[in-house]
């Protein structure tokens, strides 16, 4: 594995006195695309927040050795005021420098939104909003980008647009951490997977982790994992009941 960008060592993660993940040992190498999956409330967001530095480990250590960019789900951005796409992307920079407008335009263009700087963020389509948030994450030129449910609420076209960009970034050498409920998305794009269940992490290559038996044990019904045109498809088996 290449140089570690993220390293959890016996990290106990939680909030206050509540423990969500009792012992996390995980290393993410440079250039990896790590997917984090699991049922609701399993601790995906807790793991992400620990990488972001939003929560400190209750025990053990968490080390992040890279500039971090963060791309949340689009619904997290407050759109009460009519922020433009340029405003949103510009606020991704800590300071307002003279070259910020040019950097904003470049980031938007890199994310397939050329000339959208003056468009109101709330008026963009779901896919465009998510790409604008990716542009915001990119404006600080990060080495590591964390994605939280990047395709939630997007139609097929939106999902495709966003994931193509994610894929391009990974090919360009960025380290990516992808948190999602959509197993087929993660299965297709992640090079390695973390499956969280019952406070425990199962880490390994995608095809190993996303086995039919393991998913059935987690979700409580039969899950069909198949390949269609070389791509993973994960669906409840016909007649499966929880």
């Amino acid at each position: 594995m290449s140089a570690a960008v993220i390293e959890f060592r016996a990290a106990r993660l939680g909030y206050g006195s509540a423990v969500v993940l009792p012992a996390v040992d995980l290393t993410v190498g440079a250039g990896e695309c790590l997917g984090i999956v699991g049922p609701n409330g399993c601790g995906k967001t807790t793991l992400l927040r620990a990488i972001l530095g939003a929560i400190a480990p209750q025990a053990g250590t968490v080390e992040v050795r890279a500039r971090v960019g963060y791309c949340p789900q689009r619904t997290q951005v407050n759109t009460v005021l009519p922020f433009t796409a340029g405003d949103v992307v510009g606020l991704g920079s800590l300071k307002r420098t003279p070259d910020l407008p040019a950097r904003v335009a470049a980031a938007l263009e890199a994310c397939g939104l050329p000339g959208s700087s003056e468009r109101v963020f709330a008026d963009l389509s779901g896919g465009q909003q998510q790409r604008a948030l990716l542009a915001r994450a990119l404006i600080g030129d990060p080495d590591l980008i964390l994605f939280d449910e990047p395709t939630r609420g997007l139609d097929l076209a939106g999902e495709h647009e966003v994931m193509q960009l994610v894929s391009q970034l990974n090919r360009a050498g960025k380290t990516l951490v992808l948190v999602s409920h959509q197993l087929h998305v993660v299965a297709r794009y992640a090079t390695r997977l973390v499956l969280i269940h019952g406070g425990e992490l199962t880490v390994g290559p995608t095809e190993e982790v996303l086995s039919s038996a393991r998913l059935q044990a987690i979700y409580g019904f039969e899950v069909c994992v198949a390949q269609v045109s070389g791509l993973p498809v994960i669906l409840p088996a016909p007649g499966a009941s929880a």
């Binding site: 530095g53 963060y70 949340p72 991704g92 600080g140």
Partner: peptide, 19 residues
């Protein structure tokens, strides 16, 4: 003004920025 706007618009992102 700028950090106030950042923490008001998206606190989690502001946290990621190190604010």
């Amino acid at each position: 003004w700028r950090p106030f706007l950042q923490v008001s618009q998206d606190p989690e992102f502001a946290q990621a920025l190190g604010l």
